[in-house]
Design a binder for these strands. Structure first.
Lengths: 199, 199
DNA sequence: GCTCTTCTGGACTGGCGGGTCCATTTTTTG
DNA sequence: CAAAAAATGGACCCGCCAGTCCAGAAGAGC
């Protein structure tokens, strides 16, 4: 009844994938439905058939998809982060992932920033995905503390926030400079700061 | 001849100031010439009289203005940064400045990121202002090394980049969360990382 | 005063892009 | 196979917004 044929699902997925690449390359403002249409060999009708709320639905789907993809690239390290080795492994995985994508222009935090003034509700939806990322880091710091690898007095939330902001800053400047060094410097700095809380 | 009356200069300045506030609040995409017009009690004619290239000129002027304002808020610390005290003083000055502006949505790096896909040339112009900021940090790190407060083997450019990315990340997440903590955590982390290179 | 320049107001245009609508084709279901 | 549901194509509409144009007001210089 309220179905979605295999064919339909495929089309929907195709749209999301193309739209994701487009939004990463051009930003929210630079992504037009017409380009998506052209890039996927679909029609306006289909776009609104699968994403009734238009651009809003589309952006939400993109955030979900891209969030999953980015998190995936950080596994298995992101789920561990319970030893110094795994933190460094994580760092390397992140750098390796983005090294192949330096021409992209739109990290998740940048997306949120761009969205907030125009559509706070949608921005909040997207922000939930950023929070997932943050939560992994926070869980990691917790584990480190539980294992007495970092000082018990250290505030795990605060430390995770520090790592997260460094990461996002690294991505942002990486995009602005179209170079990987900023990301590397940012992550190295974050881990150095984290290490200075070791016992 | 190629004059600019006192009255004209005042109008131009008024436009820049209002436009700056607008762009910080709504982002580049959300800033319309009509809103600027309304906010400054001017007309389309004047906008294009003072900024012949329209939005491009305007954005460049905004970047210049805002860059000056932000740098100003960090003085005198930003010119020193030659002792640990001055780095912490700088940190506090930055936090204090942005504490009054947490509802703003558009840091300079975010601006660059948003601009790059649409207008790379303009983005480069804006990036020059970000570089000024970075240069101050790099000079500071140099001084610290010259005074043997940090390890001679440390790469000053890299360390400055680390601080800069942390700062930008702090601003970005601050905007996304509309809270000051991310900025504080980011700067504390950066200084901690910097300190771990002390002799 | 006159003239030339700068400043101002606002009507107008043109295109872009999001979103609507419906007719047609394809697939599922029974 | 027939009917219903889902998928597709694309023409159309409409509002928004950057940018144009020009006529007229206000100053500067003489």
């Amino acid at each position: 009844m309220s179905g979605l044929t295999a064919k339909g699902a495929a089309t929907k997925a195709r749209i999301v994938r193309t739209a994701t690449d487009l939004i990463l390359e051009r930003g929210v403002g630079g992504m037009t439905l017409d380009e998506i249409r052209a890039g996927t060999a679909t029609s306006k009708g289909q776009l609104f058939h699968y994403f009734p709320d238009g651009k809003r639905d589309l952006v939400a789907a993109i955030a979900e998809f891209q969030s999953g993809r980015v998190l995936e690239a950080q596994r298995p390290w992101l789920d561990q982060l319970d030893s110094w080795e795994s933190w460094y492994g994580w760092r390397d995985a992140v750098v390796a992932h983005y090294r192949t994508l330096t021409h992209l222009h739109c990290s998740i935090s940048a997306l949120i920033t761009e969205l907030t003034p125009a559509d706070p509700a949608l921005a909040a939806t997207v922000a939930a995905h950023a929070d997932r990322w943050f939560d992994h880091l926070a869980a990691g710091v917790q584990k480190m503390r539980a294992q007495r690898l970092i000082h018990p007095e250290a505030d795990p939330e605060r430390l995770a926030l520090m790592v997260f902001t460094a990461l996002q800053g690294g991505l942002l400047v990486m995009q602005a400079h179209n170079a990987i060094e900023p990301l590397e410097a940012a992550l190295d700095g974050a881990l150095l700061a984290l290490r200075s809380h070791r016992i």
